[in-house]
Nucleic acid binder design. Structure first.
Lengths: 229, 229
DNA sequence: CAGTTGACTCGAACAGTGTTCGTATGTAGA
DNA sequence: TCTACATACGAACACTGTTCGAGTCAACTG
């Protein structure tokens, strides 16, 4: 019975005392990391998404995450990938292609808005992500079925996805409704000499309930598409 | 001749020796901070914009900046304000309103692209910035002169400015041309069963020289506007 | 002129951040 | 039974934005 076995003996005893709380035995996996991270973002926003916070929620240290995830950027990619996997592209219907595009974009928008601030990751994410390519594929099918030329479709998809990310980013930045009355008052305070049109149409400038602005912009893009072909 | 005057005497002597290098006497001002920050961003990108870096370039410590600037966010605002002041809105010409909008957006785009990554600040900036409102005013004048309804004009301006920020952000993220051949090869590697359209139109998908995609998206928005009114 | 106020300057420190190193640990294969 | 190997992770590094408080200097004020 050398020293080595004495230490083993000690650890066995220690484990004996910790027996009532062996819940921490589950190994860390990419899946658990992603789930934890998403929950964190949903509850406290993207800024709260920290390697340390995720690790703490998993009852470990930050270093443990790097065995499963290359980077924080890599983790961000995984998150937007997971979100992208939650949007489903409908089977193309040539008659309703515009509504179908709006539907897909709406799904993506809702996914992004559910996790405040995560759109920043979407904007920074490499465009070659496999899961976002799935959405691109779905949209491309819809556009082509709608009679849009491949080149226009490709560029329109780019514009549309970019807009969705930017819109959701901006929206989740200003928490909920950012005091529209205040905003209106400030616009009215502007000197009429320098800002005549803004002052005149101040109320129109920050009109728009819910996602009216969102749908308006997308419809603009799609309507413009029919004049180009 | 008490102790106090002895110290003064000492400082006078010390100053005497530092006389050959009194260049650091210029006081810190908001203007100098902004200029230094912009130079830093232009040279090394927005990520390099640190309070410490700016302070170091001004030969002082970070704390000194906070007498002139509330926050880093405040500094960011000042930067995009300065950039916005560099774009000039032309006098509205009803016949050429679309080209005028494209011109203003192009100016803004070039400003943002000159300072890589600063578009992130533009996306995060509060929409009520006085200098960006100047651009909004100019655009609003152009749209209204072009016969666009106030409501459509307001929302279109929103969409257009959002797109410019998102486009420039994404563009300055991927440094220059991000190996289009590599991107194409990756697209071709996709399984045809799951990504039929992407594989077929892979070359079309990342086509587009210079700012073709930029102008295409903006024209889409503006063309869509004429069908709405 | 003396004195006080107030703005400016800035070294030091705090609480965070992402990431790496080196060492444990436990499990699968020889 | 012993070794190899992937996973786990405490400690530390180089950063970040920001605050405190002590110092400096100019300009008003009694």
């Amino acid at each position: 019975m050398n020293r080595k076995s004495r230490e083993e003996w000690a650890t066995q005893i220690a484990e004996l005392e910790q027996e009532p709380a062996p819940a921490r035995k589950e190994p860390i996996t990419v899946g658990r990391i992603v789930t934890t991270a998403l929950a964190l973002v949903e509850a406290e926003g993207f800024d709260a998404l920290t390697m340390r916070r995720v690790a703490a929620a998993l009852q470990t240290g930050p270093a443990s995450l790097y065995a499963h995830v290359r980077n924080k950027a890599d983790l961000d990619d995984l998150l937007i990938g997971t979100l992208s996997r939650n949007v489903s592209a409908p089977a193309p219907d040539a008659e309703r292609w515009r509504e179908q595009v709006l539907d897909v974009c709406g799904q993506l928008r809702d996914q992004f808005l559910r996790y405040p601030g995560i759109a920043r990751a979407a904007l920074s994410a490499p465009p070659a992500n496999l899961d976002t390519l799935r959405i691109t594929e779905g949209l491309l099918a819809i556009f082509l079925a709608g009679g849009v030329s491949p080149r226009s479709a490709a560029w329109a998809i780019d514009a549309v996805l970019l807009y969705v990310s930017a819109y959701t980013f901006e929206t989740s930045l200003r928490g909920g409704q950012p005091d529209r009355a205040e905003m209106l008052a400030r616009l009215r305070m502007l000197p009429v000499s320098r800002f005549p049109h803004i002052v005149e149409h101040a109320d129109t400038l920050n009109a728009g309930e819910g996602h009216e602005r969102f749908e308006f912009a997308l419809r603009l893009l799609l309507d413009g598409l029919v004049t180009v072909g």
